[in-house]
Design a protein around this nucleic acid. Structure first.
Length: 489
DNA sequence: TCTAGGCATGGGTGCCTATATCT
DNA sequence: AGATATAGGCACCCATGCCT
């Protein structure tokens, strides 16, 4: 998806070409003074209109399909939150199934336990397969008939033969009849299977393919959101035990799968919620897939096989290279929108060299050079902008966070900044806390930039995150003195 | 009103202690 | 000598954005 929601980023995401020369919003007022300036503004604006149109054309098929599926008008469905899309779909189902639609009632928020995340084995691994459960939560909900109308309240006496009992939490669900969620989910899964079947044999360029592909994507999105919906406090069909039981069965399923995988000698490197990373062995993986199908009634499939994959000690962060040379970076700074582009670019570079060569040596060399460049200020200013979202009205913040201080400065100058806006800021030279040295990026001059901040607090941490695995530290990345100079001392 | 919980991370905040400075 | 100010270290919390 798109980290910073600019039209430029949207254009590059959909593969549209930007034709007009870029203008800074802050310069437009000045350009308006001359006829040449106004011509440039016109060209710029017309180009942006064209990009919006192209983006619309890219989206419209999916939008229509989603609108049709969940029964929300096209102009609403784009802005509607996922929860409301699911709810609207369920309301449509309730009519089909002869169910009454419950009223929204206020309930106290109480969190519940979620998924299992394994500690990764840090280091560089080769030939690692990622095995994923296909739609784990929807399938668990269907398998155990998890639904508001099959839930048996505690204290109600019932034959244990007639219910499924969730592990750890003990919630009970009737085996018969089919619950509302089971029916709604089955309808979605069957519809998607049918659409995908019709896709086979069609040319990806044909209009029919585009429509059907958009349809199956829309169905998938709604299917995968049903579990989250069930645990959403604002949902009409909210039942905490449903969400709690679903994750409990998910944990059990993953645990059993890991246990069996180990028992047949598969080496497990990592796992998260519904996936396990194992050292690839075709026969053993085949055996595991068969086991899960037979004993759990669920489907796992190899999602990717990494030629090399790098884990740090942290969960949810890794980078791997596929046999075609493509690199996946997950969770690391390089894919986070709240790190400056210079840090992200240099981390990407380091990761790429490590994964391609299988050793950190060349990466360290490269990193030293790139870090020296930042230290010397030889880096485009744009690459030093840090973006962070404002999530609430400014006066509600309890701490003087840098991005909030930047937002305050913008507001003082007449800008409107509120929840949902992203603030781009930079750190300038000076003393005191960070919030005294933060400025909205539009007003920062090159000579004021605190390059040492960027080296110490952005580039170094991002690079070391990856290189620490190989026992490199901060000192080893500082530019090394020449041997000739050393002799002078 | 804007699906869920799990997780890493940076920076602010507030407390404690050691030391410096003042009365 | 005792009171007060200041700096540094530490634990904790706030805030954000990612992963599944």
């Amino acid at each position: 998806d798109i980290k910073i929601k600019t039209l430029e980023n949207l254009a590059s995401y959909i593969g549209a070409e930007i034709k007009a020369e870029p203008l800074e919003e802050t310069d437009i007022a000045a350009l308006w003074a001359t006829s040449e300036g106004r011509r440039r503004v016109l060209e710029y604006s017309a180009d942006r209109c064209r990009l919006v149109m192209e983006a619309f054309e890219e989206f419209i098929e999916y939008g229509c399909q989603l609108s049709n599926l969940v029964c929300i008008p096209l102009d609403h469905v784009c802005a509607a939150a996922v929860g409301f899309r699911v709810e609207s779909y369920l309301m449509k189902c309730s009519r089909l199934f002869g169910e009454l639609i419950p009223k929204r009632v206020e309930k106290p928020y109480r969190p519940y336990a979620g998924a299992i995340v394994l500690n990764p084995k840090p280091g560089l691994h080769e030939n690692i397969a990622v095995l994923d459960f296909r739609s784990m939560y929807p399938n668990i909900m269907m398998k155990y008939n998890v639904s508001p109308d099959t839930y048996v309240e505690p204290g109600v006496e019932i034959d244990p033969e007639d219910v499924y009992v969730a592990p750890e939490v003990g919630h009970r669900f009737l085996k018969k009849p089919d619950g509302f969620y089971r029916e709604a989910l089955r309808r979605l899964l069957e519809a998607r299977a049918e659409v995908r079947q019709r896709l086979e044999g069609l040319s990806p360029e044909s209009a029919e393919y585009r429509v059907l592909d958009a349809r199956q994507k829309a169905i998938k999105v709604v299917t995968n959101a049903v579990y989250g919906y069930a645990g959403w406090i604002g949902a009409r069909w909210y039942r905490r035990p449903i969400a709690e039981a679903t994750t409990a069965w998910g944990r059990e399923t993953l645990r059993k799968t890991i246990e069996y995988a180990r028992s047949i000698g598969l080496d497990i490197i990592y796992g998260d919620t519904d996936s396990i990373f194992v050292r690839y062995n075709e026969d053993k993986v085949e055996k595991l897939i068969r086991y899960v199908a037979e004993h759990e009634g669920l489907e796992i499939k190899p999602d990717a096989i990494y030629v090399r994959i790098l884990f740090t000690e942290a969960k949810k962060r890794y980078a791997g290279i596929l046999s075609d040379g493509r690199i996946d970076i997950v969770g690391l700074e390089a894919v986070r929108g709240d790190w400056c582009e210079a840090a992200r670019r240099i981390q990407r570079e380091v990761v790429k060299i490590i994964l391609e060569t299988g050793s950190p040596d060349k990466a360290v060399e490269k990193a030293r050079g790139l870090i020296a460049e930042v230290k010397a200020g030889k880096v485009p200013l744009r690459e030093l902008v840090i973006w962070k979202a404002i999530t609430r009205p400014i006066e509600e913040y309890k701490v003087r966070a840098p991005h909030v201080e930047a937002a305050k400065r913008l507001i003082k100058m007449g800008w409107e900044v509120g929840p949902g806006d992203k603030v781009g800021f930079m750190i300038v030279k000076g003393s005191g806390k960070l919030y005294d040295r933060v400025r909205p990026y539009q007003f920062v001059k090159r000579e004021d930039v605190d390059y040492s901040y960027y080296v110490e607090n952005q580039v170094m941490p991002a690079v070391l995150r990856v290189l620490r695995v190989f026992d490199y530290d901060r000192e080893s990345l500082e530019t090394v003195r020449q041997r000739g100079q050393m002799r002078l001392f």
